[in-house]
């Protein structure tokens, strides 16, 4: 990996939420949504984060885009420390970082026509009036939408079309970093494929660094250059895509892989069904967060939290087995 070429770097990021206690005398507990995550994304690269609900993947995306303040750690964007940025500087930064959301039906103001929504972005960020219409038209054709979509209100468009428009809107300001939070989860399979193809095309043509958040292993495998698996706020495994899926090391990743329903009959797979539910992230003990559900759980796992260790080829695993 090219270190100097990274667009965004988060080091030891942590996000804690204070949970007020219902009892007066008792001190409130803390929910650790993101726990010392280090992440680095280079230009034209898609970094995938997979995990189940509540694992902190969305929070991580919100931390990196400064939608939420970090409790600890630093964020460096294009060589500039933006951890403590606020006010006007933060609003100026927004044009360089964008988000694409899961629910395409909700990501446009229902009372605003698409054209007016796109024009507003241009107006707020002072894109000259002479250039803006051409720029919008060019982006629309790039995401495969006809110009007449501009006259529609969101309720007249389908989920796939709205997601294309949301992507066009996020590209309007020429961002260098995009967080795509489950961008295809709400879409039908055939449309999902269209959007994934589009994302892969745009990454090349716009030289964007992207954080791709998903709960589906196959989707992440299809589009990402590098993948991290997240469980209860921490990365448990991180590797370049090819390497990760060739040598899955962490027991949680293995279970997650085995839980993916597959249409292929010839892949004889070992079925690992995890017992129990995902525990709450409030008041976690000192050990490995996955230990209670892990089939390899040892004494050591309950006492000491494993750190990410490099197994070679950029493959990092946080597990006492390795």
């Amino acid at each position: 990996m090219n270190l100097s070429g990274s667009v965004i770097e988060g080091t030891n990021l942590q996000k804690r939420y204070h949970i007020p206690s219902r009892k007066l005398a008792e001190k409130g507990k803390e929910l650790v949504a993101v726990d010392s995550v280090t992440i680095k994304i280079g230009r034209s690269r898609i970094f995938g984060v997979v995990g189940e609900s509540g694992c902190g993947k969305t929070t991580l995306g919100r931390l990196l885009t400064k939608m939420e303040p970090t409790s600890d750690g630093t964020i460096v964007f294009n060589g500039r420390d933006i951890t403590r940025l606020s006010g006007k500087d933060l609003i100026a930064l927004r044009s360089q970082m964008q988000m694409v959301f899961q629910n395409p039906y909700g990501s446009f103001n229902p009372k605003q026509r698409i054209g007016s929504a796109l024009a507003e972005v241009a107006k707020v960020h002072k894109i000259p009036k002479e250039i803006a219409p051409d720029k919008i038209a060019a982006l629309l054709s790039e995401v495969g939408m006809p110009i007449d979509a501009l006259g529609r209100v969101p309720s007249e468009l389908s989920g796939g079309q709205l997601q294309r428009l949301a992507i066009a809107r996020s590209l309007l300001l020429g961002p260098e970093f995009i967080v795509a939070d489950e961008p295809v989860s709400a879409l039908d399979v055939s449309v999902q494929a269209q959007i994934l193809n589009l994302i892969m095309d745009l990454r090349e043509s716009h030289a964007i660094a992207m954080l791709f958040i998903s709960h589906e292993m196959p989707v992440v495998k299809a589009v990402c250059d590098e993948v991290a698996v997240m469980y209860l706020g921490s990365f448990v495994e991180k590797a370049p895509t090819q390497e990760l899926f060739a040598n899955i090391a962490h027991p949680y990743t293995q279970a997650l892989m085995s839980a993916v329903p597959s249409i292929d009959s010839d892949i004889a797979k070992e079925r690992i069904i995890l017992e129990g539910d995902i525990p709450s992230a409030i008041g976690l003990g000192p050990g490995c967060p996955f230990a209670p559900r892990c089939r390899h759980g040892m004494e050591r796992c309950r006492l000491e939290k494993p750190q990410l260790r490099d197994m070679g080829a950029g493959h990092l695993v946080a597990c006492h087995l390795h």
Partner: peptide
């Protein structure tokens, strides 16, 4: 979601409140 989208597009709070 559209309000989150507006924030991430760098709109001012005043604009978000009155226009959206």
């Amino acid at each position: 979601t559209y309000v989150s989208a507006a924030i991430s597009l760098g709109y001012s709070p005043l604009r978000i409140m009155y226009r959206h």
